[in-house]
């Protein structure tokens, strides 16, 4: 597989949110607006690429039985580094995303890619895989955030174009489940047509 395919497969065919249905917690919790969704996606992308590379480089030296704890430590280290960087340079976004930044440690996407891809592929390939999956996740979260923001508060990326309130429930918890359900259905429909 070429490097380009490695990146593009994460966007549609193996989209972590709409197809693999992984990392649902941040997907539902942080997508109250398009900006928040995108920030969460990019934060995950950062950890995913670095941890994929580090795990791919160290995998041959890690005994099989302790590989999972070792991976978790590596991932947690990168997550903490991300926390420092965000606190220093984007404190507002860090505050908005709150607990879900440290919770990237237990995001199944990150550990999942380490197990399924990074520990058997080269560093460069693993980086490409991380970028692809991370971008797929970012795009999915941005779309979900945009839909919820449009319906829920009548704005897009913070730019308000409807006076007054939207359908408030879409910003709240039930709207998160509902919007995601319909987006998955839409995604299924669109990709099914493509295959024909």
């Amino acid at each position: 597989m070429g490097k380009f395919q490695l990146i593009t497969k994460g966007l549609v065919k193996e989209n972590p949110t709409f197809v693999l249905l992984l990392g649902m917690c941040p997907t539902l919790a942080t997508t109250t607006s398009a900006i928040n969704g995108m920030s969460m996606g990019l934060a995950t992308l950062f950890v995913l690429v670095l941890s994929n590379m580090a795990i791919s480089a160290t995998a041959p030296y890690i005994p099989d039985k302790v590989r999972i704890p070792a991976y978790i430590v590596i991932i947690a280290a990168f997550v903490t580094i991300l926390q420092f960087i965000m606190q220093a340079f984007t404190p507002d976004i860090y505050k908005t995303l709150g607990l879900f930044i440290p919770l990237i440690v237990v995001n199944c996407i990150v550990l999942g890619r380490a197990e399924a891809f990074a520990n058997k592929n080269s560093v460069v390939d693993s980086a490409c895989d991380g970028i692809g999956i991370g971008l797929g996740f970012t795009i999915a979260l941005t779309i979900l955030g945009l839909v919820r923001e449009l319906l829920g508060s009548g704005s897009a990326f913070g730019y308000k174009f409807i006076d007054g309130d939207g359908i408030l429930v879409f910003v709240l918890a039930p709207g998160a489940f509902m919007a995601l359900a319909y987006l998955i259905v839409l995604f299924k429909k669109l990709t099914a047509k493509k295959d024909e």
Partner: peptide
Amino acid sequence: MAVQSSFKNMTLCL
């Protein structure tokens, strides 16, 4: 070749 999962290796690695 993968590193052996001996007790010494595991502790050292972690």
